[in-house]
């Protein structure tokens, strides 16, 4: 007997799927803003060798890059409470994403900073700008511009990785999908549609990052 595809039992749960998608996007948005922010701070600390922060960021980056995201998430959600720090599933999910993206963007942005020619810094210095001013006005935008495609990919990787947050009952898209297929037993259809939604979100993020990059980073100011 051939399998009969039926999408109606999935579409009954459209509102749940949309809610899940919304939370996945929200999680990613917050993760991206604070993760990239953390990455900028980490990259500056490492590029300027501001001790002890540079050393701390180096350890942090290695720790995050060499361990699974799921374990990082469990560590935050299950591990921290044993130290007396209580944390909800949303806070844990956001924190895990910020920490994860922060580590990768530290390395990515550091490469961007390193790619700015020395002559740019000398020109800024010769105009009597201090280190902070030359970073803020001369280095930051070209650095981000250089690594923007890499950052975009990393944000998408983290968005896709957020699926594992369902493991701590964060009600994002994969959590919604798991819930739906446990009710309608339509695993193929449910995950087919879920896959399509992830794909659409990824494309959307890429376009959005492209637009942000054009408007605020490589674009004209005036």
């Amino acid at each position: 007997m051939a399998y009969e595809f039926e999408f109606a039992p999935v579409l009954e749960y459209t509102d749940l799927l949309l809610k899940g998608a919304f939370f996945t996007i929200a999680l990613t948005a917050v993760g991206a803003v604070f993760g990239i922010g953390l990455g900028i701070i980490g990259a500056v600390c490492r590029a300027w060798r501001l001790q002890p922060f540079a050393a701390l960021f180096a350890v942090y980056v290695e720790l995050i890059r060499n361990t699974p995201f799921l374990v990082q998430l469990f560590f935050i959600f299950f591990g921290l409470p044993s130290l007396g720090i209580h944390i909800g599933e949303w806070e844990a999910a956001v924190l895990a994403m910020v920490i994860n993206l922060g580590a990768y963007s530290t390395e990515i942005i550091r490469a961007g900073i390193a790619s700015v020619p020395k002559g740019q810094l000398e020109a800024a210095a010769s105009l009597a700008m201090n280190r902070y001013e030359s970073f803020r006005y001369v280095v930051l935008r070209p650095a981000l511009q250089t690594v923007w495609p890499a950052l975009t990919s990393q944000v998408i990787i983290v968005m896709l990785g957020s699926a594992v947050c369902s493991q701590i009952a964060t009600e994002e898209l994969t959590f919604a999908a798991n819930f739906i297929q446990s009710r309608n037993f339509r695993a193929f259809e449910t995950y087919f549609i879920t896959t399509a939604i992830y794909f659409a979100i990824a494309i959307m993020i890429r376009q959005l990052m492209l637009a942000i990059g054009k408007r605020y980073i490589s674009g004209r100011l005036s």
Binding site: P117, G119, Q120, E122, A123, S126, P142, L221
Partner: peptide
């Protein structure tokens, strides 16, 4: 540096501005 201006061989204009 407030008293001294400098022009370089490689121009070093800020490309994003």
């Amino acid at each position: 540096r407030l008293k001294v201006g400098m022009v370089f061989q490689q121009f070093n204009l800020f490309p994003h501005l």
